[in-house]
Write a protein that binds this DNA or RNA. Structure first.
Length: 326
DNA sequence: CGCCTTTGACCGGCGC
DNA sequence: GCGCCGGTCAAAGGCG
């Protein structure tokens, strides 16, 4: 516990490990957040932006305030249904402040290489867990276990628990094997929402927080997290998701939440930059989205220059190669 | 006072 | 059957 706290402080000054890829984002403070599209393939083969995938499809409409001191993120998506990947793309993701890599652990047979060794461990664990759950304890006779979609990603962050616009209650913490750091368990505080998330630090890279979401929110982002200054608007009525669009992994948003504040916290969760990271010396990570249901995305070697060039912040999220394909 | 975190106990699955 | 392990429960305490 104490150690964790100290870690947080220590990591604040922690330098980004080996810069593998030039920083594709500008140092400007992000105020808008375009939604990348055509980057990910959904189960039905439809192009789907990553943010859409995780339920941020409306973000492009919103201005964005970074609230987290937390920083870069590497996302490890855990796609639910055992759908074979239909394509693979290269993406040099975010940039600012985060980069993500997503990989499915649903089938437990994802050949895609994990972004990090820690991720590998996580994947392994996830696979195991998934197997457990599928065969598992919560299944009662004659009752199929609910397959909760999972979406995990790594965040290079000094804080363990990132605000994502939802309210979470911590219900457990366990030391896990092969990890120096304990794993924390959170549950969405919404009574009707069974979404859980696990948060743990990578033992390989203590600066990396691995967050695994399980389940889908059946309600809009309730409020700006505690301590935030912007009062949220009242939640909009729950609406069915776009008929043609299955719920994003781990998140279900009522469509168009009109207010900006409503969506912002979410983004901040994944992409919140550290103020310290607004410099180009920091290297973003390759976003590897390898979801069985979506696509495998490997890093590209786009230069910061080219990335910064055109589309404002869009380039921060999607490399030009990808965007060209659209 | 309500909400949250902490933390030890408990439970079930799995491997040996 | 036993022990290990991950996940969850729930009481206690802290905080605003």
């Amino acid at each position: 516990m104490m150690m964790m706290m100290m870690d947080k402080r220590d990591e604040e000054t922690m330098e980004e490990p080996a810069a593998e890829i030039p920083l594709p984002f500008s140092a400007q403070s992000p105020s808008t957040f375009p939604t990348p599209r055509g980057t990910f393939l959904d189960a039905d083969g439809a192009d789907r932006g990553f943010l859409e995938l995780i339920g941020l499809q409306e973000l492009h409409q919103s201005s964005f305030l970074f609230q987290q001191p937390a920083a870069r993120a590497t996302c490890v998506a855990s796609a639910p249904p055992p759908v074979q990947a239909k394509s693979s793309d290269a993406v040099n993701f975010p940039a600012n402040p985060s980069s993500m890599s997503c990989s499915s652990t649903e089938t437990g047979a994802n050949p895609t290489k994990p972004a990090t060794a820690g991720e590998a461990n996580e994947q392994e664990a996830e696979t195991k867990e998934r197997c457990k759950e599928e065969g598992g304890k919560k299944k009662k006779k004659g009752q199929k276990p609910q397959k909760e979609p999972r979406f995990a990603f790594e965040t290079r962050s000094e804080v363990d628990h990132l605000d994502d616009g939802y309210r979470w209650r911590k219900y457990g913490q366990k030391a896990v094997k092969n990890s120096r750091f304990p794993r924390s368990y959170y549950r969405c505080t919404s009574a009707t929402c069974g979404v859980k998330k696990r948060v743990e630090r990578s033992s390989d890279d203590p600066a990396v927080v691995v967050t695994t979401y399980e389940g889908q929110h059946n309600h809009p982002s309730p409020i700006v997290p505690r301590g935030a200054h912007h009062a949220p608007p009242p939640p909009p009525p729950l609406l069915p998701a776009e008929p043609s669009m299955p719920p994003p992994l781990g998140f279900v948003f009522s469509p168009p939440v009109n207010t900006k504040e409503f969506q912002l916290p979410l983004l901040s969760s994944y992409l919140a930059p550290s103020p310290l990271d607004f410099n180009r010396s920091a290297a973003p990570r390759t976003i590897v989205v390898t979801s069985d249901l979506t696509a495998s995305i490997e890093g590209s070697n786009q230069t910061a220059e080219s990335a910064i060039r055109d589309d404002g912040l869009l380039q921060d999220l999607i490399p030009s190669e990808i965007r060209k394909e659209e």
